[in-house]
């Protein structure tokens, strides 16, 4: 089914541009054209289809659903909804406060917010097409695991102590209200959407998401192509291929200043793995790039005190390092 993209790249690079498949440039360019065209087509089709299905899901409904749930199950649900609910990262603060003022524990809210950048439909789709379903499943399980355990940990240390005072008060009020009755400002019964409305929504989503991620695909695949064509075969494997213990924390640290979304980083992952970087090290690098970024953390300062921010940051870095080590150990058995 994906053969057509190989043909397209053959035709464009080898015939039209007259490059030889044996040159580095030809090889890198072929890889670039094939991957970019494949990813673009997949993105447009899949974002549309997925958006049709989830047109009626939004953060308001997730909040109403999570409010007043029992805790143990709450983390799993919070993380799961984080993976499938669409929302722009510029809305993280209003979402955090919306959940908090509905009395939802900080840990469950954070399970939602931590999982959200790591897993989304675009990321899953790219992973499936570039690295196969096994790796995708692994990625989803690990991503949700980080969100869930991070959330549990934050509640264990009673992280709400270190919220900014207005947010802490909102949480208290929310808990009181929750005990008296069901959520005060419920968004009403689920409205039934007609197909035309769903189509409108899906069209809008496709345009918007594609508009946001297309350049990341170019950057990501471009980097991947450069790795593919110009880093000598076996270089990564012979230098980092044994999964030396320090390579994992090094990869996590390297990922902090690099900021990308999952869409841009996945094509790079593909090249790193194909070039022989161990899976754990690759995962650690990519998760750190996607989820631990300074701009996002500065935003969270509006609702959290420095102390909680520092703890959160440390938790994430430790989690990604552990993920890397565990996967490097397990690789021989996968």
């Amino acid at each position: 089914m994906f053969e057509i993209f190989t043909r397209l790249a053959d035709w464009l690079v080898y015939q039209l541009m007259g490059l030889s498949a044996d040159t580095k440039l030809g090889d890198a360019l072929h890889f670039f054209v094939e991957d970019v065209s494949k990813i673009y087509v997949l993105l447009v089709v899949m974002i549309y289809v997925i958006a049709l299905a989830r047109a009626s899901l939004n953060v308001e409904r997730v909040r109403d659903f999570l409010a007043g749930r029992n805790r143990g199950f709450g983390y799993l649900l919070g993380s799961g909804f984080g993976a499938i609910t669409p929302f722009c990262s510029c809305s993280s603060i209003p979402v955090f406060l919306g959940f908090t003022s509905a009395g939802i524990p900080v840990g469950i809210t954070m399970a939602f917010l931590l999982t959200s950048p790591l897993i989304n439909e675009v990321a899953v789709l790219l992973l499936m097409s570039l690295l196969g379903w096994k790796f995708t499943l692994l990625y989803v399980v690990v991503g949700m695991g980080v969100g869930i355990l991070g959330g549990v940990f934050l509640d264990q240390i009673r992280a709400e102590r270190w919220l900014q005072s207005f947010a802490r008060k909102a949480l208290e009020r929310g808990k009181q209200q929750g005990k008296q009755q069901q959520p005060a400002q419920s968004s009403g019964p689920a409205e039934k959407l007609s197909f035309a409305e769903r189509h409108q929504f899906a069209k809008g989503e496709t345009g918007e998401i594609f508009g946001r991620v297309w350049k990341w695909v170019i950057i990501g695949v471009g980097l991947g192509a450069a790795l593919h064509g110009f880093v000598p075969d076996g270089w990564i494997e012979s230098h980092l291929g044994d999964g030396q213990w320090w390579s994992v924390p090094a990869a996590v640290l390297l990922g902090i200043p690099l900021y990308s979304n999952a869409t841009g980083v996945i094509p790079v992952m593909e090249s790193l793995i194909v070039n022989g970087l161990p899976i754990g090290t690759t995962l650690a690098f990519c998760m750190s790039t996607v989820a631990a970024s300074f701009p996002e953390f500065i935003l969270l300062k509006q609702v959290m005190q420095w102390r909680l921010l520092a703890i959160l940051f440390a938790v994430l870095l430790a989690a990604f390092t552990l993920v890397g080590w565990i996967f490097n150990l397990l690789t021989p058995f996968i």
Partner: peptide, 8 residues
């Protein structure tokens, strides 16, 4: 938050 808005 006081307007109850979650999506901006």
């Amino acid at each position: 938050m006081n307007y109850g808005v979650m999506s901006t």
